[in-house]
């Protein structure tokens, strides 16, 4: 990356603490989405079943979404892990997360008794939809933080 020079003065402390928070958020997001992607890739059909439970898409489209989504999560997670193309990866994950939040709210409002399908597509392992919603809101905070701190860090280092 081009942004790699530390400035003197008060910016240095801000830069240091910002760096810690930035890398912490980035690595947490990377771990979550690499895990999430890998576990879904192992059983795409089961993940399609989890998506179908939300009753939002035409039947066959659940399979198309289930085939693509895990690879997108995995790709973005890997980019965050290696600290490359961070903002495009965060943009994709933020949009996905917003969609997940809308879908979860929709399922909760319809009173669906289903597994959230967020990680392990195993029907015996039912995750609470409200827990998943809170988790997604937490991830959203990390995503916004990573996006903002990446920009600040670059500006401080470039100046």
């Amino acid at each position: 990356m081009a942004c790699c020079r530390i400035t003197a003065g008060g910016g240095r402390l801000m830069l240091f603490s910002g760096k810690i928070v930035y890398h912490g958020s980035r690595l947490i997001l990377a771990a979550v989405f690499i895990y999430s992607g890998l576990i879904k890739i192992q059983d795409v059909a089961a993940f399609a079943g989890e998506i179908a439970n939300y009753q939002l898409f035409p039947y066959a489209w659940n399979y198309l979404i289930a085939a693509i989504l895990p690879y997108l999560e995995l790709l973005c997670g890997v980019l965050l892990l290696i600290n490359r193309r961070v903002r495009p990866a965060v943009m994709v994950l933020t949009l996905l997360n917003l969609v997940f939040i809308v879908v979860l709210v929709s399922a909760l409002s319809r009173g669906l008794d289903i597994s959230c399908g967020c990680f392990n597509p195993d029907s015996a392992n039912h995750n609470s939809l409200s827990t998943a919603l809170w988790r997604d809101l937490g991830l959203l905070v990390l995503m916004v933080g990573t996006w903002v701190l990446h920009g600040i860090r670059c500006r401080l280092e470039v100046e």
Binding site: L64, A67, I68, L69, P70, Y71, L72, L74, L75, C76, L79, R85, R87, P88, A89, M91, V92, L95
Partner: peptide, 15 residues
């Protein structure tokens, strides 16, 4: 644009 490329790449691999 880079985000879009990521989506297209993931779609091609997944499909």
């Amino acid at each position: 644009l880079e985000a879009l490329v990521l989506c297209v790449f993931a779609a091609v691999v997944g499909i």
